[in-house]
Design a protein around this nucleic acid. Structure first.
Lengths: 131, 131
DNA sequence: ATGGACCCTGTAGTCACTACAGGGTCAAGC
DNA sequence: GCTTGACCCTGTAGTGACTACAGGGTCCAT
């Protein structure tokens, strides 16, 4: 059981110290033991748990989804269908965002193509926005 | 100069009443005249301005960018280069988001393809997240 | 005169952090 | 033994772009 300080944990997981304390505050990470000087003292289990959280965040899961994934991953015998459902929800949300952003990009590209670098008075971009 | 109530304005621009008051509070929309009963009284100019804001929001511009676009659009004789720059910044940000989300989608799709609907203990999705 | 639809202000909540302010702890160097 | 500086603590407030009340006032029709 090595003692890991919050700064070490932050560095080893690529998280900011404040973010770790935030995760603890909202109950996503369990509060660790404290040293005599009231410093947080983490161990390898905490490191694993935080790595999990950060990887899931990188994959676009919300903190609520991660909370659920964490509690599911503790019930080893359960079917992983619930995990699948959460992942699929996440995927659907991501695909929706991609579609919206792609439509946006196309519209903006069109607008920019029409720009003739004249004065503001005959700017196509502003035209497109005006009523 | 027709009198337009905040509710009418909201309906005609597809904005919520609270959002209009919020735009006024942050100085994005000018405060309108008031009626005897202290109700906000808008006119066609306000309608145009709010439509502009909403359209720009739909195109992914931030409120700060919109603030700049609005002030630029008032200087009719100026070169529209600055408008172009803002639009290009917006486009670049959108393209960055699309790239990130696409990478995310591919990773998630891979993970989901590997799901064999077993127990949580051998769930590939959780494996990928665990340290 | 009363009901309901609308309006007002002000404040707090959302998400996932981030940034202080104002202090305490600890190890190294002098 | 003392100081310096890096680290840590709590608590609060800020970010963007809204959204959602609470607790009241206004207006118009019945």
């Amino acid at each position: 059981m090595a003692h890991i300080s919050i700064g070490d944990l932050a560095q080893r997981t690529g998280t900011k110290v404040e973010t770790i304390r935030y995760y603890e505050r909202i109950g996503l990470l369990q509060a660790p033991a404290r040293t005599a000087g009231n410093y947080r003292s983490y161990d390898e289990a905490h490191l694993g748990r935080l790595s999990f959280v950060r990887r899931a965040r990188d994959l676009g899961f919300s903190l609520d989804q991660i909370r659920e994934l964490l509690s599911l991953s503790d019930e080893r015998d359960r079917s992983c269908e619930a995990v699948d459902v959460i992942a699929r929800q996440n995927l659907a949300a991501i695909e929706r965002k991609i579609r919206n952003l792609t439509a946006l990009r196309d519209e903006l590209t069109d607008l920019l193509d029409q720009c003739r670098r004249g004065t503001v008075a005959d700017c196509r971009i502003l035209d497109a926005l005006a009523p």
